[in-house]
Design a binder for these strands. Structure first.
Length: 417
RNA sequence: GGAGGGGUCGCAUAGUGGACUAGUGCGUUAGUCUUGAAAACUAAUGUGGGCGCAAGCCUACCGCGAGUUCGAAUCUCGCCCCCUCCGCCA
């Protein structure tokens, strides 16, 4: 969410960003509504002032008459104001955030820039199997019974697959805790304001499961509840940045991708994720540094696991509305013969905190909206694709990365009998 | 789910239709006193919005939303949350 002041003073820039991010909004209408809003507000304040003065005096018959008149007028103007404000905030909520200067301008994924890559791609002297085939052969993934019981894109993780999944989550969790992140088990059933606040709404409504209760949704990421953790609060500068690592199940409808990735564990409705979330002060340069820190954490995890990956700097056309800078990490997935997205690392600026009303008191006593950043640490089962496929042996067994051995209790998954 | 109690400016409390422009205590900040500290004293100390060069002025907010009234923290209705007990339950 941008402030009206910002939009007024940077109209040309806002229009340019709308174009670069491929969004539409009527900027002139916003400024006109804002003008109307102020006009009504002024009128209302004058009327209220008169009413307040009146009600402090001994009341006379004329006073009562005037009071009634004021009441009627106020009602009209207050309704007017309410409607103007609703229209205004509706329109503003669609204005995306302003990317940083280093973000490349581009229309779509082709405009993203590969920053660097790590690890050697595996060379197989046999025909490698996909994670789907491996999952069957090792009896660790059961998609048939998954779809039978859960529906399209359903799955069971089984045997060492189930253990591996939990071990990976816990490995990432522990690693971030050791780096000073505050561990959170976050709710997945969330109120609508958290989804609006994090910038999921109003755009991605089709992507979210709504429960039958009036105001309850299944979050697609713990970013929603954790970003809203401090909503309506004023923090102090000294306690920032606050770094959280949150674990939660994630639910996504994957609407509009019915034909895509229909097999296997790449695109599922239900998965689990360890997320990194930072609430920081309103400082772009500090945010850049924290962004790199989040990036390093995610890359370290992949390096610990020995999985080859590449890092992309996302262009304007391929980033979300709230983001001002974003890196994606893509991990090598042999069956796709390409890298597949496994982590996404973003600076949100004050976009979310304006919607969620999260401020901090500066040392000089003034108040300012916080900045937020977030990055995946590890999401499973998608990461299992890379793990199983990259570490498969000729006989179909799979090596387990060393860092996980104490958690899993095994160092390889043998072919099932 | 049922019964009862509660929600007031960081915390604790007062306030049951007009000076509430929300009192008091604690906390916090600044000052006075002190070699320093403590104590004491004095003052300041919520959030959003508008007007103004500024000092400042105005306005809204007492869990949330409607309503009654010339006037609502206070009365009415609906909702939310918390506490206690009962029921159910991992």
């Amino acid at each position: 969410m941008l402030s009206v002041d910002y939009i007024r003073n940077n109209k040309e820039e806002v229009i340019r960003v709308l174009k670069n991010k491929k969004r539409e909004a009527d900027v002139d209408k916003i400024l006109e509504l804002d003008r109307q809003k102020n006009e009504s507000l002024l009128l209302i304040q004058k009327l209220r002032e008169e009413r307040n003065i009146l009600s402090k005096k001994t009341i006379t018959q004329e006073g009562k008459e005037r009071g009634k008149k004021i009441k009627q007028e106020l009602k009209i103007h207050e309704e007017e104001l309410k409607s103007t404000e609703e229209q205004l905030s509706q329109l503003i909520s669609y204005i995306p955030n302003i990317p940083l200067e280093e973000v490349p301008i581009g229309a779509d994924a082709s405009g993203n820039i590969v920053k660097h890559a790590w690890g050697n791609l595996p060379k197989f002297d046999f025909a490698p199997l996909s994670h789907i085939e491996l999952g069957k052969k090792l009896d660790i993934i059961d998609t048939e019974r998954g779809t039978k019981t859960s529906g399209f894109r359903g799955y069971f993780l089984k045997n060492q697959g189930a253990v591996l999944h939990i071990s990976l989550m816990f490995y990432a969790f522990q690693k971030l805790i050791q780096k000073g992140f505050i561990p959170l088990i976050a709710p997945s059933i969330v109120k609508g304001f958290t989804l609006f606040g994090s910038g999921q709404f109003p755009w991605g409504k089709d992507e979210v499961y709504k429960l039958n209760d009036d105001d309850a949704y299944l979050a697609g990421t713990s970013e929603a509840p954790v970003s809203a953790y401090f909503s309506g609060e004023i923090l102090s500068e000294d306690e920032l940045p606050k770094k959280f690592t949150a674990f939660s199940p994630c639910f996504r409808k994957e609407a509009g991708s019915y034909g895509k990735d229909t097999k296997g564990l790449y695109r599922v409705h239900e998965f689990w994720k360890i997320e990194q979330i930072i609430i920081a002060k309103n400082d772009v340069n500090q945010a850049r540094i924290l962004h790199e820190e989040l990036q390093k954490n995610a890359e370290e995890l992949l390096q610990d696991l020995g999985l080859p990956y590449q890092v992309l700097l996302m262009c304007t056309g391929d980033m979300g509305e709230p983001q001002i800078k974003k890196y994606d990490i893509e991990t090598w997935m042999p069956s796709r013969n390409s890298y597949g997205e496994t982590m996404s690392n973003s600076i949100m600026g004050d976009f979310q905190t304006r919607r969620l009303n999260i401020k901090y008191r500066k040392r000089d006593g003034s108040k300012e909206y916080c900045f937020t950043l977030n990055n995946t640490a590890l999401a499973s089962p998608r990461i299992l694709i890379a793990l199983l496929e990259n570490f498969q042996e000729k006989d179909g067994s799979v090596r387990i990365p060393k860092v996980l051995h104490t958690l899993t209790g095994f160092d390889k998954i043998p072919v099932a009998k």
